[in-house]
Write a protein that binds this DNA or RNA. Structure first.
Lengths: 181, 181
DNA sequence: ACATCTATTTATAAAACTTTTAAATATCCC
DNA sequence: GGGATATTTAAAAGTTTTATAAATAGATGT
């Protein structure tokens, strides 16, 4: 799927650039801190990959991240990008969009409903809450396009995965090397 | 990713079965009606594929749908399942979970934010709405597992795709054969 | 009910996406 | 700075999804 990059309406001015630089520096520090705490080595590749996702507000896929990173590190491989992105996700430094992890999934429930999604296995269950139907959205949302429906997505850890985690901890605890967040 | 099928807590009783049968019959009728209206042929494969997604509350992937359908039609191909599922999606009879369509996408924005998602191209943009942070969830949601965060997903058609649609309509109008819904 | 026209399915194969393997390299801790 | 060890790389294999062309089946008019 091609994402047509919709550029910000106004050219970013100098002040704005400075703000973004500050923010990204802050996030790089956070990244390094989490890596150290988790005993994960800080390599150039990992830094640039994290920087790339953090800077790209379009929620890029691995290929897009690769392209961006190669401007600075021409030899990185797609493999490393994938490994690093999943590692960042395990560390809780980034998230994936939707329950992803591979296969496309389909939903025939057209009635007004919402989703619980497990962050670990992707289990997705419906729930109903009529009171959520008339949520008040900020006006700017309409600027993105025509709105069709509003769905609430509750993320967490499902009962099954929580149990698995507990088991792993009491035995060896090597399955989720970077913690779960 | 494996989804461990969490079975419903109680065995469905006879009354319940009857209700489900009624509902699925209703949906099959709706399916046929939409197909006729859109001049799409009603084949056994399409009926069984639609029935399968409509019956499966776990939001199955194509492979899972294939397995289910093959119990009744042993010769269907995975290709047909994919083609049919995307067609059903174009017809507005089913949806996909998340912005899917292929590649996994990553999000480094950890702050409290929400998403606008284009149903056609998958474009996903962040928006902020602090007032949505303290949404009141129905108690049953906690039964699914441990909740971590709540994100609102607004779906629609982005400005770019709306424009593309308009163009197609005024020229030939063959790109979205089944309409857009 | 039958023939015909055309969309759809199937099997095969290819494309697209993601992960593994084993050798080469770079990081971190002393 | 040197050495143990995690990480990267390139190549290849594994998955998931889509395209191709021949065979089949639905729908329309009779």
């Amino acid at each position: 799927m091609l994402i047509h990059g919709q550029e910000p309406d106004q050219a970013t001015d100098h002040n704005n650039d400075q703000k973004i630089d500050q923010k990204i520096d802050q996030r790089m520090e956070q990244f390094k801190h989490v890596c150290k705490k988790s005993k994960v080595k800080i390599t150039d590749q990992r830094m640039e990959i994290f920087r790339e996702v953090a800077l790209n507000l379009e929620h890029p896929d691995a290929e897009t991240v690769l392209k961006g990173v190669r401007k600075r590190l021409p030899t990185v491989s797609l493999d490393t990008v994938y490994r690093t992105l999943w590692m960042l996700s395990d560390l809780g430094l980034i998230n994936t969009l939707g329950p992803s992890r591979g296969r496309t999934r389909f939903d025939a429930n057209l009635s007004d409903h919402h989703h619980f999604v497990c962050n670990l296995c992707g289990l997705t269950r419906d729930f109903y809450a009529p009171e959520l139907s008339n949520i008040n959205l900020p006006g700017e949302v309409k600027d993105f396009g025509d709105l069709e429906k509003v769905q609430v997505e509750v993320r967490g850890i499902c009962n099954f995965c929580r149990e698995e985690l507990r088991k792993d901890e009491t035995t060896e605890g090597v399955n989720y090397p970077y913690g779960t967040s």
